[in-house]
Design a binder for these strands. Structure first.
Length: 281
DNA sequence: AGCACA
C-alpha cells in the first residue's frame, strides 16, 4: 500500500456538545475503519477518522456526507489533507475491520469484547463457523441524497426483484438491536422496512450496510434510508404519530436524541420488554 | 425512486 495515500476522513458539522465516543460509535462499523478522534478547534468539533485505505475512506465519505446527525445538524465529510496520527490509546477505539497493527502492540487486550457483530466480519479464521450466512458480496456506492432524519426504522431500496426475506434477515436480522422487518413487493419496486430498538442501532446499520450487494442484487448495492415513520406508526392529519400496531408509545423513537449510541440488545432479543421505560434524550 | 402497517 502507498504509505502516502490519504485514508483519513475529515468531518465537520457536529453540534457543540458532541462527544468523541459519538464519533467513534458512528463510524466503527464501516468497512475499513481503524480509528477516529475528535478535535476541538476554537469551540468547533472536528472529527478525524482513519480507514485502511483511500477506497474505504471514500466509501465512508459517501455514506456519511450530508448525514443528518441530529435534528439540526448535518455532517460534512471530506478527505483530510493528511493522515491522522494514531496515538497508542486509540487502540481501544479501533474497529474490528481495521488491519492489525504491524508489531501487534494491541494484542494484550481485547479491543471489542462484545460478540455482537455478524461473524462474517470477524477477521480471525478461528472465530468463523462454517454455518454462518454469507455476508454481502461487496459494497457499492449508492446515491442517497434524499435521506430522512435518523429513525429507529430503516427503509431499504434498490433491491432486486428476486430478493428473499431470508436474504434480508441474514443481513439485517443479525445486527444488534434488531426487532423485525417487512418485505414489501410493490408493483414498481421491492422495498423493505427494518425496525431496531433504538435510533443508535439503526444508525450503525445505516452506515455499515449502506450499498451492500446482495446475492439477488442486479442494479448495484442496496440503498438504506431512515424511514419517514417508525415501524408500527403513521402520522395522522395533524402530523402527530399514531400507533398502528399495539404496544408502542407515541413518537418516542423520532424525538430521541441521536446520542448515547450503545446498542442495548443483542440479535434475537430485540423486542422491548413489557414495562421498560422509553429511552430519554 | 419507490415509505408499508394489526
Amino acid at each position: 500500500m502507498n504509505p502516502d495515500e490519504v485514508r483519513t476522513v475529515f468531518i465537520t458539522g457536529f453540534p457543540q456538545d458532541v462527544k468523541e465516543r459519538e464519533l467513534n460509535n458512528l463510524l466503527r462499523f464501516l468497512p475499513g475503519y481503524e480509528a477516529s478522534q475528535m478535535h476541538w478547534k476554537n469551540g468547533q468539533a472536528q472529527g478525524f477518522a482513519l480507514f485502511s485505505n483511500g477506497a474505504t475512506a471514500r466509501t465512508a465519505i459517501d455514506s456519511s456526507h450530508n448525514l443528518t446527525f441530529d435534528e439540526t445538524t448535518t455532517l460534512r465529510c471530506e478527505l483530510a489533507r493528511k493522515n491522522m496520527y494514531i496515538k497508542d490509546d486509540q487502540a481501544a477505539k479501533r474497529g474490528r475491520y481495521g488491519a492489525e497493527p504491524q508489531a501487534a502492540p494491541y494484542t494484550a487486550y481485547a479491543p471489542n469484547p462484545a460478540p455482537q457483530q455478524p461473524a462474517y466480519y470477524q477477521p480471525s479464521p478461528v472465530a468463523a463457523p462454517a454455518a454462518m450466512p454469507a455476508g454481502p458480496r461487496a459494497y457499492t456506492n449508492v446515491s442517497n441524497t434524499k435521506d430522512n432524519p435518523p429513525c429507529n426504522t430503516l427503509f431499504i431500496g434498490n433491491l432486486g426483484d428476486t430478493v428473499s426475506e431470508s436474504e434480508l434477515r441474514n443481513i439485517f436480522g443479525t445486527q444488534p438491536g434488531f426487532c423485525q422487518l417487512k418485505l414489501n413487493r410493490g408493483l414498481k419496486s421491492v422495498t423493505c422496512f427494518v425496525e431496531y430498538t433504538d435510533i443508535a442501532s439503526a444508525m450503525a446499520v445505516h452506515a455499515s450496510q449502506q450499498g451492500a450487494v446482495l446475492t439477488s442484487s442486479d442494479r448495484g448495492g442496496i440503498r438504506i434510508q431512515f424511514s419517514k415513520n417508525p415501524y408500527g406508526k403513521k402520522r395522522d392529519m395533524a402530523g402527530n404519530y399514531v400507533t398502528t400496531i399495539p404496544g408502542q408509545g407515541p413518537g418516542d423513537y423520532m424525538s430521541q436524541a441521536a446520542s448515547g449510541y450503545e446498542p442495548t440488545t443483542v440479535p434475537g432479543e430485540g423486542v422491548k420488554a413489557e414495562g421498560e421505560p422509553d429511552p430519554v434524550a
